[in-house]
Design a protein around this nucleic acid. Structure first.
Length: 472
DNA sequence: ATGTCC
């Protein structure tokens, strides 16, 4: 497959075979997926065959192999031109995302309290594959309230403060949620999991602002150097996973009716305007509200731990999803089009003065949060004017090795000792899950955000480093 | 990512 370098930060996969648009990969040469094993660039080309896709099939600098679509992929389809929606373009963890909290506390106060603080977080943050959450919902009716209301419902029920909502994407509550389009099985899986972290690369970290690249924007976001922060990375748990599983099956069966032919069955999709397409988008929005309420509940758990050990309050900087499909208006060749924008392992980064931004963020552009891998830095970015890829940027470091390979090559206990010796307190769940998340299985997150900035997708605002990790 | 197989 041809991969033509166009700039130091952009490569092109020219149209070939059934591709309707080219592939565009934003990365440096060093960040491109390995030639062996990782098939993500073939996946970029496969996505370019989707009915209704416009402009290009995009990959972000953290691109790697995923289910059907690459992780780090962005694809938009034209709703009024037979454009499709695909669950594989969102991912299994619907509305997986990141929330950053800024403590009214500076790093010099940490050494005295870090151990007990991490112990409390370790004991009170539910995590791991099967674990239930902190908010035991009364019944399915209350779960419907969560699925319709998202973080807004959680705050209204006392699990947060109104200011939290001003700093959530979509004010914490995405529109169009249709809980009735979620299977009983998915509802049952979600019922006990609200306020839980999950596993894999999900984490809750205590971090310190290590570097500021744009003082004015950092100040507008509520961040300053040496400030203590909490970063929460989690999603919609078993509920979102089951929604994805259910609709992949539905669409795989329904696709023939629409005469859709694809190079990979994992791209299963239907027209946005079809019954199944509308049902998926309604279920996906409901799962998104679940994920946002989930991050709201974990915020409450973090606030209680900080209150107890430091007395410091935690202010929400921002909450953003990186696994989502949304209906958005974009101008293409001078015409405004209604597009279904899939971002899978990609983050929306609206430019300054975009109409969907709240007034207090209009001047800065959308805050975009990039969780690093365990023991490495995380980043705060902002959207920029004129960015390509429907105002999207990267979402994290991006895997370079499978979980299996990582666990084979790394000893979890030794990794923990290594992190502790570097001053990072670790509260994990199992040695194996720790080993699977070794930083050596990921790209260099600093290089990823530099490439994203170099490509004109966003700009850097602040860099944070971890001092305590609670790992799922 | 995920009750890592219905």
């Amino acid at each position: 497959m041809d991969l033509i370098p166009e700039t130091p930060y952009r490569f092109r996969i020219p149209r070939h075979g059934p591709m309707r648009v080219p592939g565009i990969v934003y990365a440096t040469r060093d960040l491109l997926p390995e030639a062996t094993g990782d098939k993500s660039l073939e996946q970029v080309a496969n996505v370019a065959t989707l009915p209704g896709i416009v402009t290009a099939s995009y990959a972000m600098p953290d691109v790697h192999w995923g289910y059907g679509f690459p992780i780090g992929g962005v694809a938009a389809t034209d709703v009024s031109a037979g454009g499709v929606v695909s669950p594989g373009g969102v991912g299994f963890d619907i509305s997986c995302g990141v929330r950053l909290l800024a403590a009214r506390l500076d790093a010099d106060r940490l050494p005295a309290v870090l151990g007990p603080l991490m112990d409390t977080l370790g004991h009170t943050v539910p995590r791991g594959l099967h674990h239930g959450g902190t908010w035991q919902l009364a019944d399915r009716a209350q779960l419907y309230d969560v699925l319709l209301g998202g973080a807004r419902y959680a705050v209204d029920a006392g699990h947060g403060v109104p200011r939290d909502l001003a700093r959530c994407e979509d004010a914490g509550q995405i529109r169009g949620a249709a809980p009735g389009r979620i299977s009983t099985h998915a509802l049952e899986r979600g019922l006990g999991q609200l306020g839980s972290l999950g596993s894999g690369n999900h984490f809750l970290e205590v971090q310190v602002v290590d570097d500021i690249f744009d003082e004015a924007t950092a100040a507008a976001f509520g961040l300053h150097r040496h400030q203590v922060c909490v970063l929460i990375h989690t999603g919609s748990r078993g509920l979102g996973h089951q929604v994805c599983t259910d609709y992949i099956r539905t669409m795989d069966e329904a696709m023939n009716r629409y005469g859709i032919q694809l190079p990979d069955r994992q791209l299963a999709c239907v027209p946005v305007t079809s019954t199944a397409g509308q049902a998926y988008l309604g279920a996906m929005a409901a799962a998104t509200n679940f994920a946002r309420a989930n991050r709201q509940l974990l915020t409450e758990t973090a606030r209680r731990a900080f209150e107890r050990h430091t007395g410091a309050e935690l202010d929400l900087v921002y909450d953003v999803s990186h696994n989502l499909a949304t209906i958005e208006h974009h101008e293409l060749d001078g015409q405004w089009r209604r597009l279904c924008v899939h971002r899978k392992g990609a983050t929306r980064a609206l430019p300054p003065h975009h109409p969907d931004l709240p007034a207090e963020l209009a001047a800065t552009g959308q805050p975009t949060l990039i969780p690093g891998t365990m023991g490495t830095a995380s980043h705060v970015l902002a959207g920029v004017a004129g960015s390509p890829a429907f105002h999207s940027t990267c979402h994290g470091a991006g895997r370079t090795r499978s979980r299996h390979a990582a666990a084979r090559e790394v000893d979890g206990q030794r990794l923990r000792d290594d992190l502790e010796s570097r001053g990072i307190a670790v509260r994990g769940t199992s040695w194996r899950s720790l080993a699977e998340e070794t930083p050596t299985a990921y790209k260099d997150v600093d290089a990823v955000v530099d490439a994203a900035e170099g490509a004109g997708l966003c700009r850097k605002v602040a860099r944070l480093v971890p001092v305590g990790v609670v790992k799922g």
